[in-house]
Simulated scan of single mutants.
Amino acid sequence: MFVRTLYATGDPANIDTAIDGLSTEGHELLGQQPGFRGFGIFVDRELGKLLAVTWWESEEARSNSDEALRERRTALLERFAATTAIDNYEAAVFHSVRQPEAGAGLRVTRVEFDPSDADLFAETFRASVIPRLETLPGLARASLLIDRDRGRGLVGAVFTDRESLDASRAGQAAARHEGAAKAHVTVTGLEEFEVVLADVRGD
C-alpha cells in the first residue's frame, strides 16, 4: 500500500473543528476515491497537533486523490491549521493484531536512513522489531512507512489504550535501539498521539 500523511499544527482550542470536518465530510470524500484503503486521524490536543494518514492501493490512486481533494482538505483545516506538511510514503510493513478504537494511543518514530538501506530497514523491522513489539501488552498495530528516495520514514505503533501506550515506552525503546543499530537508522523524532480514527483495510 501507499500512504499520504498530513501533519498540521494550530491553536489547540480549534482542533476539534478540524477533527469534526475530517472525520465526517473528509472521510466520506475519501471513501469515494478509487483505490482508497483507509484513513487515520491522530491528535495531540494539548499542543495542537494533528496527523491525518490516508492509505491507497497504488501510487496512482494516491496521486489522483490528492488532486481531487486538495481544495476541500484545505477548507476543512482552515479554522485550525496554521502550518501543514504533506508527505508520501510506501507502506513497507503493515502488521495488524487487533482493530484500535477511539481513545487508543499512537507512538510515531521519525527516522532517516541511507536510501540504499531501505530494504534492509524493512526486513529488519519485519523480522526483528515486530516480534519485540508483539510482546508488549496492548499492541494493536505496527507499521513502517518509508520514502526510499529521500531516506526518510515513520514507524507507527498503536496501542489499545493510553495506559498500554504509557507502559510500552521502555519496551519499545529497547526494540527501537536494537532495530536502529541493525538497520543503520537514525531516529530524528518521537511523538505520541491520541487515536481519533484508525480504519485501514490491510492486505
Rank of each mutant, 00 (worst) to 15 (best):
M1T: 06
V3Q: 08
T5E: 13
Y7E: 15
D11A: 07
A13R: 14
A18C: 02
A18P: 03
D20L: 04
G26C: 04
Q32N: 07
D44L: 04
K49H: 09
V53L: 02
T54G: 02
W56H: 01
E57S: 10
E57C: 11
S63A: 15
S63L: 14
L69P: 01
R72Q: 07
A81I: 01
I86D: 14
D87F: 12
D87R: 01
E90I: 07
F94L: 15
H95W: 10
G103M: 00
A104P: 02
A104F: 06
L106D: 03
E112C: 09
P115W: 03
D117E: 11
F121R: 05
R126L: 05
A127N: 08
R132T: 05
R132H: 11
P137C: 03
R141Q: 13
R150T: 07
G156K: 10
G156E: 11
V158R: 06
V158T: 05
V158P: 01
T160D: 07
D161T: 07
D166K: 11
R169I: 13
R169G: 07
A170C: 08
G171W: 01
A173P: 05
H177I: 01
T186F: 14
T188W: 01
L190S: 13
E191C: 08
E192Y: 12
A198W: 14
